[in-house]
Simulated scan of single mutants.
Amino acid sequence: MSTETETGVEDGNTLFSDIDLSWEHRKNELFRWLLIAASLFGVVMLALLLFDVVTDFYTGLTEFNISLYEFFTQDGSQEETRAGFKGAVIASIMLMIMTAVLAFFVGVGSAIYLEEYAPDSRITRLIEANLANLAGVPSIVYGLLALAAVVNGIGIGPILIAGAVALGLLVMPIIIVSTQEALRAVPDSVRNGSYATGATKWQTIRRVVLPAAIPGIMTGTILALARAIGETAPLIMVGALFVNRTPSGPTDRFSAMPTQIYNWAAQPSEHFIHLAAVGIVVLLSFLFVMNGVAIYIRHRYETEV
């Protein structure tokens, strides 16, 4: 018996030893290096872009005497020595507040209905598939929609509300999809345990499911707003290209940070190019802060839960 077993093992070893796997190993190694090269390419390109922006930023502060105090306290202007970023910063903050109000409650409410109440039917699956597709639609399409429906359709003109509608339409599918994923991550055993205590469906969602899903919901929302704050195409479509004053309300015309940077970068003067670099650094700072807030909120809620 043992002799037959040993003979079988020897035959198996002989069988596998006849297969040359060196080419397979080389292909695996080649594929691994291709992945590393692709990753490094993106990182290197990003590093070069950041280096170019930081260089122009430093040159603007040292050689062109751009004062950061005046940069943050002056409104936009066609005169390079008087051009500032105050109106654009305030307009972007107001835009993000209105966009969050328009998109968050509708997006989270839609996700709760689709995930917790809607039946698993063909229509529901079609809606979810369309929402996933809408999350990848180019941002200029939402700008064209806001231009046709709000700016020209209703006739309110290129004001802050129109920009908020365009950005709200842009981020709403992202918020819905991220909220659905956060709700799906909550185990069914948690829901069943709540039902076992006599809680209703809404009580279970409000007191059990949502607290457990809030880290994912908040992270997705803040990251969606971080994308919206850097979008230029929708705002250009609604007419927010250049305004030389600070908006005081949602019915005022405006220039947000991306459109102000775009306007400066299109100017022939080199001074405006360096003003655009300073504006890019400010916009990147906003993006880093918003991403940091998303990470902090997620970590805090996960720790509490």
Score class of each variant (00 low, 15 high):
Met45Val: 09
Asn133Gln: 04
Gln78Phe: 12
Arg82Gln: 14
Glu115Ile: 02
Val54Ser: 14
Ser77Lys: 08
Gly60Met: 01
Asp52Arg: 01
Gly136Met: 04
Ala103Tyr: 05
Ala91Pro: 13
Val89Arg: 02
Val101Pro: 10
Gly87Gln: 03
Leu49Ile: 11
Gly107Ala: 07
Phe57Leu: 03
Pro119Cys: 04
Val54Arg: 07
Ser67Gly: 07
Phe85Leu: 12
Tyr58His: 11
Ala148Trp: 05
Leu49Gln: 13
Phe105Gln: 03
Phe41Arg: 05
Ala146Leu: 06
Phe72Asp: 06
Arg125Phe: 09
Ala88Trp: 07
Leu144Ala: 01
Ile161Met: 14
Phe41Tyr: 15
Ile112Glu: 01
Val150Ser: 00
Arg122Leu: 08
Ala100Arg: 03
Thr62Arg: 14
Val53His: 01
Gly109Arg: 07
Gly87Val: 06
Ser77Glu: 00
Ser110Val: 12
Ser121Cys: 04
Gly84Phe: 06
Leu95Val: 13
Val106His: 09
Ala135Gln: 09
Asp75Tyr: 06
Ser67His: 03
Ile93Tyr: 04
Arg122Ile: 09
Thr55Val: 00
Leu147Cys: 04
Phe41Asn: 10
Leu46Lys: 02
Gly157Gln: 05
Ser121His: 07
Val137Lys: 06
Gly84Cys: 11
Ala83Phe: 14
Arg122Lys: 14
Ile123Leu: 15
Ile90Asn: 04
Asp56Lys: 15
Met94Arg: 10
Ile66His: 14
Ile97Thr: 00
Thr73Glu: 08
Gly42Tyr: 11
Thr81Tyr: 12
Leu126Phe: 12
Met96Val: 12
Met96Arg: 03
Leu145Glu: 08
Val44Cys: 10
Asn152Trp: 06
Ala38Thr: 10
Glu128Cys: 07
Leu145Ala: 12
Ala148Thr: 13
Phe41Leu: 08
Leu147Met: 08
Gly107Gln: 13
Thr55Ala: 10
Leu50Tyr: 15
Tyr69Val: 11
Leu131Ser: 11
Tyr113Ile: 01
Val53Asn: 14
Val151Ile: 02
Met98Glu: 11
Gly107Trp: 11
Asp75His: 01
Gly107Asn: 06
Tyr117Ile: 15
Ile161Ala: 09
Leu134Asp: 04
Thr62Lys: 09
Asp52His: 08
Val53Pro: 09
Val141Ile: 15
Ile127Ser: 04
Tyr113Met: 00
Val44Leu: 14
Tyr113Asn: 02
Leu48Met: 08
Leu131Phe: 12
Gly87Ser: 13
Gln74Glu: 13
Ala149Gly: 08
Ile161Leu: 15
Phe85Lys: 01
Val89Pro: 00
Phe72Thr: 01
Leu114Glu: 00
Gly84Pro: 08
Thr55Pro: 02
Gly76Arg: 10
Gly42Thr: 06
Phe41Thr: 15
Leu49Thr: 13
Ala132Leu: 14
Ile93Asn: 00
